[in-house]
Design a protein around this nucleic acid. Structure first.
Length: 646
RNA sequence: GCCGUUGUAGCUCAGGGGUAGAGCACUUCCUUGGUAAGGAAGAGGUCACGGGUUCAAUUCCCGUCAACGGCUCCA
């Protein structure tokens, strides 16, 4: 007998060689029907594999990420089987699970595979799934593995096997299909109840552009048909929220081929929104002791030689600007830090001056690859909500903590309740990769982790993800429909203070090198606005939205009264406009709803006579008639409640 | 940068070797209205750009640019 410890701490005595699936069956048939794989001593394995010794056991279902991955991994094999049925002779490369579904890289030879072919493959997958073919694991010798794929004529698998050690090679088979695979897999194909091919795209074999381009087929499967339907609805919802679409519809920003790709043009409404965000953050930063600075959009090439960026990024950047003066060169600034370092150096600094927090909404230019540009999330000219905190090593922890406070305040006010912090530390196996003393690194790494815990952040630690110049902390938010985005970032930097020879006089009257902390809660205004648009589906919070109130006269006879209402609201700091068009009120309401204006005020004979407005809330409808001042106060109360979030 | 797809009116899109069409938006007129689309008329296009084939190209071919879906990249 062996002892298995379950996640709740309870134990079960079972015969040696019992499978996880059998354990599930002993708990309940229902559970057994849902078990996709199992985590045994922390390793995810087939639920059908015998357990030979005492172990901790977690049964994995669709509710576990690892369970999902197992189903999708098995589905990749199923899709490969279906593809082979339709296209005999295709060569298969790799087929892993991904965050949402899975893909298989396939060499279709001369055959064209396109969206039109998806349906038949899906149909075959489901037919095969219904056969409930078991996934059978088999350990094979390297020689046998090579023999198998040589027979099959699949050079990609042979190349993969080449990199594997004899004795560690396993095959998995289901139905008539056998694949080289480490596993794990679900017990049988019957668990797959719904399948959808999503997309095809080119991808290089092993991600190397010197290699052959394969066809990557993206797909997703589910253990229930209804889950697929929910997922398709989510995709549809994501399409509706796409900031590129909403940005155009709501008149926020645009691009012009003539201006240049990746260079956004902020339209009046988008500018209004952005400036309001800027003011919001400026105000919060002022309260936290930041000093606002402004630096030029260009800097001499020498500045970037000092910073080291010329050497590293120079040839992939917008090229230097030359001047009538022979040999003089300037660069569009790709970041603000070097300028801020020079501000630090404008006067001798004492430890009493630290921390010095220099903030700037700094516009920078980076020559991103053409294929990378994407709406507002990846552009060539953008404005960082940047700041650099110059402090002593001892102050790092406290300063990082203050940045966390600022970010939490922003998330709260802008309604991002679901987020986590990723702490990126050194790769312990490769200490020579990093600049700065061990002692400093250790203090900062420990400080960041401690303060993240103290602030109650949900944290994940990634080793080896730190930049060469210092550890960092990034915030990952989940938006309203569950997608993850990387937002604010905090980075400790030992490198630039060194390169710019920054120093301050300590209490000991000796020169010391400050530490620099880069931080940008939004990342960039462009990217943040994009995420915000998708998060709130274009329905911005009342305090932020460009047009808060639209006044809709019932007929042109009341346009004058409507204008006087608008004027009155503006005196209350409310952004109001009149729809003076010669249209019926139903039409004006419809248009205001589509423009996502939070409040509509209908005015006609009755309101004009009484000096009132008939209010209507977007999405809710008529909320009754009230005096202008009462309405204005109501709106301002609502805004005050939003901004006082702490 | 690489692979694939696309580029027709402000927007969404149809069409197709003989120089263009719909709906919405826009302008004007009729209507002067009460909580998600009133009616009529009008205006609007070098069919992305450059080259080629052709009697003739928006349509076919090549190239460029851009957008989109991926890959690689991201100070």
């Amino acid at each position: 007998m062996i002892t298995l410890t379950l996640p709740d701490g309870s134990t079960r005595e079972v015969a040696k060689g019992t499978t996880s699936l059998q354990v599930a069956q002993s708990i309940s048939e229902g559970l057994a029907r849902n078990v996709l794989s199992a985590e045994v001593n922390g390793e995810v394995i087939d639920a059908t594999r015998p357990i030979e010794a005492d172990a901790t056991l977690k049964l994995l279902t669709w509710n576990d990420d690892s369970g999902k991955s197992t189903l999708w991994h098995s589905s990749a094999h199923l899709m490969a089987e279906a593809l082979e049925a339709h296209y005999p002779g295709i060569k298969l490369a790799i087929g892993p699970p991904i965050e949402n579904g899975f893909y298989y890289d396939v060499d279709f030879g001369d055959v064209e595979f396109s969206q039109a072919d998806f349906a038949k493959v899906e149909k075959t997958m489901l037919e095969l799934a219904r056969q409930k073919s078991e996934y059978i694991r088999k350990e094979v010798s390297k020689a046998d593995a090579i023999h198998f794929f040589r027979e099959k004529g699949d050079q990609y698998k042979l190349e993969l096997i080449d990199g594997l050690e004899d004795g560690q090679i396993t095959f998995y088979s289901q139905g008539n299909f056998t694949d080289l695979c480490r596993g794990p897999h679900i017990p049988n194909t019957g668990f797959i109840k719904a399948a959808k091919l999503l997309n095809v795209a080119g991808a290089y074999w092993r991600g190397d552009e010197k290699n052959k381009m394969l066809t990557r087929v993206y797909a997703i499967t589910f253990p229930k048909q209804s889950e697929l339907e929910d997922y398709l609805k989510l995709l549809e919802e994501a399409r509706k929220r796409d900031h590129r679409k909403l940005g155009k519809e709501l008149g926020l920003f645009a691009f012009s081929q003539k201006v240049g790709s990746g260079l956004p043009l902020w339209l009046p409404k988008g500018t209004d929104l952005r400036m309001r965000l800027t003011a919001f953050l400026t105000d919060a930063q002022k309260k936290m002791g930041y000093l606002q600075v402004i630096t030029p959009h260009i800097g001499s090439k020498e500045l970037y030689e000092t910073s080291g960026h010329w050497e590293k990024y120079g040839k992939d950047s917008f090229q230097p600007i030359s001047t009538p003066q022979e040999g003089e060169m300037y660069m569009l600034k790709p970041m603000n830090c070097p300028h801020h370092c020079e501000i630090f150096k404008t006067e001798p600094r004492s430890y009493r001056d630290l921390p010095l927090r220099l903030a700037e909404f700094g516009t920078v230019y980076r020559y991103e690859q053409t294929g990378e540009l994407h709406g507002l999330t990846r552009v060539r000219g953008f404005t960082q909500d940047d700041a650099h905190i110059f402090c002593t090593v001892d102050q790092v922890k406290e300063e990082v903590g203050k940045v966390i406070d600022l970010v939490l305040y922003i998330f709260k006010t802008l309604d991002f309740p679901d987020f986590l912090a990723q702490v990126s530390l050194r790769d312990p196996g490769n200490p020579s990769k990093y600049i700065g003393s061990d002692a400093n690194w250790e203090a900062a790494e420990r400080g960041i982790q401690e303060v993240a815990t103290e602030k109650g952040l949900k944290t994940v630690v990634e080793y080896g993800e730190a930049a060469f110049y210092g550890p960092k902390l990034d915030f990952m938010v989940r938006d309203a429909i569950g997608r993850r985005w990387q937002l604010g970032t905090v980075q400790v930097d030992y490198n630039l203070p060194e390169r710019f020879e920054l120093e301050y006089t300590g209490a000991d009257n000796q020169k010391h090198r400050p530490v620099m902390i880069h931080r940008a809660p939004f990342g960039s205004m462009e990217r943040f606005v994009a995420i915000l648009i998708e998060h709130c589906a274009g329905q911005f919070p009342l305090w932020l939205t460009p047009e808060q109130v639209k006044i809709l006269p019932v007929s042109e006879k009341y346009n004058d009264y409507a204008q006087s209402v608008a004027k009155s609201l503006i005196s209350y700091d409310i952004r109001a406009l009149v729809d003076e068009r010669n249209e019926k009120v139903g039409k004006k309401i419809r248009d205001a709803e589509l423009e996502k204006v939070p409040y509509m005020l209908i005015v006609g004979e009755e309101e004009q006579g009484a000096g009132t407005v008939s209010a209507r809330k977007k999405g809710e409808g008529d909320i009754g008639s009230l005096a202008i001042a009462d309405f204005a106060n109501k709106v301002n109360e609502e805004i005050k409640a939003m901004l006082s979030a702490q």
